[in-house]
Simulated assay, not measured.
Amino acid sequence: MEGSVVPDPQAACLDICITCRDPQTGAPGEGERLFKAASRMPAPDGVTVRPLSCLANCDRGCSAALTMPRKWSVLLGRLTAPQAGDLLVYARAYAQSTNGMLMPSRRPDSLRNVVLGRVPGAAMDLP
C-alpha cells in the first residue's frame, strides 16, 4: 500500500479492503476500484477513509469496515465502486450516530442489505 493514513483517534474509520485481484488477469479488484472512487470524493467530517489489506471476507465480495471508539463496528460486504458516494454518506451517518447502529431505513438504498455483522467497540457500555 502506498503511504498510510493515520486516522484521528476520535474519527470514524472507513477501511476498504483492496487485497482481491481479478483471478484471470491479476488486475485490481472491486475493492481497489471502490477505494479509488471514494478517495476522489471529499471525506465527510469526522471520517477517515483508508485502504486495508484483507478483511478475510472474500466469499462475500468487496468488503469494508466502519469503526469508531465506543461504537459498534460494522462489517460490510457485496460492495461495488459505484456505491462509493453512498458509502461515504453511510460513513457520515455512522460517525454522527450515538452507538454506530443504523437501521436499514437510515442507510442509502444501495446499502440497505450490505451489513454482514457487527462487533461491540472497545469501552462500550453493553446491556
Rank of each mutant, 00 (worst) to 15 (best):
A27H: 07
V6Q: 00
D45L: 15
L76S: 04
T98V: 01
V115N: 03
A122H: 14
A91C: 09
R107V: 01
G29E: 03
V5H: 00
G61N: 06
T80V: 12
Y94E: 00
R21M: 05
L88Q: 09
A11K: 07
T80D: 09
G61T: 06
G77V: 11
Q24F: 14
G121K: 14
A65I: 13
L66R: 03
V119I: 01
V115I: 09
R78E: 11
R118Q: 03
V6T: 10
Q10T: 05
T25C: 09
N57Q: 14
Y90R: 01
P51H: 04
Q83K: 11
S53V: 06
I18G: 02
Y90F: 14
R78I: 05
V89N: 04
D86Q: 12
G117W: 00
L79R: 14
I16D: 05
L111C: 01
D22R: 13
M103G: 01
R92I: 07
P51I: 03
V89H: 08
P9Q: 10
N57T: 14
E2M: 00
S97N: 05
A43S: 15
L79H: 13
C58H: 03
G117V: 05
P69D: 12
L88V: 14
M1C: 06
D86M: 09
L55V: 10
A93R: 15
A27D: 10
M101T: 02
R60A: 08
R60D: 06
G3R: 00
G85P: 05
A12P: 09
V74D: 00
A64G: 06
R50S: 06
Q96H: 03
R118T: 01
R107L: 01
L14I: 07
A91L: 08
A95K: 09
Q10V: 01
A12T: 14
R60F: 12
A38G: 08
S63C: 11
A81N: 09
R112V: 04
E30N: 06
L116Q: 15
C54H: 13
M124N: 07
M124Y: 08
D86I: 13
S97L: 06
T80L: 06
P28M: 01
P44K: 12
R78Y: 11
P7L: 06
A81S: 12
R92K: 15
S110G: 02
G3E: 05
G121D: 11
R92Q: 12
S97G: 06
E32Y: 12
R33E: 10
G77S: 14
R78M: 07
L102T: 00
K36D: 04
L34Y: 12
P23R: 15
P9A: 07
K36I: 08
Q83F: 15
P120H: 10
R21E: 02
Q24E: 15
L111S: 02
G26Y: 11
P82M: 13
P120K: 10
P104F: 04
A43G: 13
A37V: 13
S73E: 10
S105V: 03
G121T: 15
V5Y: 04
R33V: 01
R107P: 04
S4H: 08
M101S: 00
S39C: 11
G31L: 11
P69C: 07
D109A: 15
V89W: 05
L66F: 02
R107Q: 03
